[in-house]
Simulated assay, not measured.
Amino acid sequence: MKKILLSAAAVLMLFSCQNETTETNDLAASATGRRMCAAQDVLEAQLEADPTLAIRMNEIETFTQARISRLNSNFKLVNGKIVIPVVINVLYRTATENISDAQIQSQIDVLNKDFTATNADFGSVPAEWSGIAANVGITFELAGINRKATTKTSWGTRDAMKSTKKGGLDPTSPSTTLNLWACTIGGGILGYAQFPGGSSSTDGVVIDSKYFGLSGAGSAPYNLGRTGTHEVGHWMNLRHIWGDASCGNDLVADTPVAKTANYGDPAYPFVSTCLPVHNEMTMNYMDYTDDRAMYMFTNGQKARMAAIFTSGGPRAAIGQ
């Protein structure tokens, strides 16, 4: 397991520097139809547009690491149980894109199971990680659904779907609510999220409507709602398991170092080429594997997520 020993300057560099290897891998993934999350690319664009964002994210990281250092895996949140209200914003051109209330509820149900370790496949966690597989203990409740017809065939990743003036829907109470947008993103992107520290006017998670919730066999292998779990993990301050760099750092001490993104349904054990020799945690929600192949968070990830909801954290107002 890795240790988190980052100076303020190193953290600032982590948030403000683009990794060419990751970009190349993502382009290759798009060409072969494999999972693509645009959260990192969107972050890079936001950092370029707003130089102060890196400073805010550095401050959040300093706060997070300080808070984690005072907690263990059995910590209690300052405001007790966290229940996150969720508003769904559906943007549709076709009847298929106008996803049903039942499909929307299925995404909420998946989030509740995955973040409380009540998902049926949680029992598949390998024995070597059974001691750190986490019940994050955060739940979600549907607070509202907004729907809007549109003529757009795709929305891209420049947050147009989050703006009424640009034909989308503004976020609802973003300081106290998680907003999810369901729409056609395009470009092979399954979804993306905004990390803590970004503008409230664009805060939330975007999921392509084809992969929203339990979306049916036609959307396999991304039909089990795990795109939502992955993206909400980003919204709660988790990085990709490989740290968006070759053998990179995801800022979590108990996740094994990964060479790069993993795809499909890798057989366990999956031996890493990052030294020293160890197995990669391909079943972690923050990898790029198929929905059926991801089914766990770690205690370190739990602590990192929960820290942002504690007093003074960037999402402390949510779930109060």
Rank of each mutant, 00 (worst) to 15 (best):
residue 128 E to G: 00
residue 18 Q to D: 12
residue 245 A to M: 12
residue 162 K to E: 09
residue 149 A to Q: 12
residue 20 E to T: 10
residue 299 N to H: 13
residue 10 A to G: 15
residue 72 N to F: 09
residue 64 T to W: 03
residue 292 R to G: 08
residue 99 I to D: 03
residue 64 T to K: 08
residue 68 I to V: 13
residue 219 S to D: 05
residue 302 K to F: 06
residue 60 I to Q: 08
residue 178 L to W: 01
residue 10 A to D: 15
residue 165 K to H: 04
residue 52 T to F: 15
residue 59 E to P: 00
residue 283 M to Q: 11
residue 35 R to K: 10
residue 221 P to G: 10
residue 232 V to Q: 02
residue 15 F to Y: 15
residue 303 A to L: 15
residue 170 D to L: 01
residue 262 N to L: 10
residue 299 N to E: 15
residue 267 A to I: 12
residue 247 C to Y: 09
residue 175 S to R: 11
residue 52 T to C: 06
residue 122 F to T: 12
residue 262 N to A: 04
residue 17 C to Q: 14
residue 312 G to A: 14
residue 222 Y to V: 03
residue 271 V to A: 11
residue 300 G to T: 04
residue 220 A to C: 10
residue 238 L to T: 07
residue 67 R to E: 12
residue 293 A to W: 04
residue 122 F to M: 03
residue 204 G to L: 06
residue 215 S to D: 10
residue 88 I to P: 00
residue 318 I to N: 02
residue 18 Q to V: 14
residue 116 T to R: 07
residue 87 V to C: 03
residue 89 N to D: 01
residue 300 G to D: 04
residue 163 S to K: 12
residue 269 P to M: 05
residue 189 I to P: 06
residue 86 V to N: 03
residue 37 C to H: 04
residue 280 E to M: 12
residue 100 S to I: 04
residue 181 W to A: 07
residue 48 E to S: 14
residue 32 T to L: 14
residue 113 K to R: 15
residue 164 T to I: 06
residue 152 K to V: 03
residue 153 T to G: 13
residue 142 L to M: 05
residue 237 N to S: 10
residue 204 G to C: 02
residue 217 A to K: 08
residue 146 N to V: 13
residue 230 H to P: 11
residue 265 D to F: 10
residue 62 T to A: 14
residue 39 A to F: 04
residue 44 E to F: 14
residue 264 G to C: 08
residue 138 I to H: 04
residue 153 T to Q: 09
residue 212 F to M: 09
residue 250 D to P: 12
residue 214 L to N: 12
residue 214 L to T: 11
residue 88 I to T: 11
residue 118 T to V: 07
residue 150 T to P: 02
residue 33 G to R: 01
residue 78 V to F: 10
residue 27 L to P: 00
residue 58 N to H: 07
residue 319 G to W: 05
residue 236 M to K: 02
residue 234 H to R: 09
residue 141 E to Y: 05
residue 257 V to L: 11
residue 196 P to Y: 11
residue 212 F to K: 05
residue 46 Q to Y: 05
residue 234 H to P: 03
residue 318 I to S: 06
residue 258 A to M: 15
residue 312 G to K: 13
residue 139 T to S: 14
residue 74 N to E: 13
residue 236 M to D: 06
residue 104 I to G: 06
residue 154 S to W: 00
residue 91 L to G: 10
residue 87 V to S: 06
residue 155 W to S: 09
residue 135 N to M: 00
residue 47 L to D: 11
residue 213 G to R: 08
residue 41 D to W: 01
residue 255 T to P: 07
residue 210 K to E: 08
residue 301 Q to C: 00
residue 106 S to F: 06
residue 62 T to W: 06
residue 67 R to T: 15
residue 19 N to V: 10
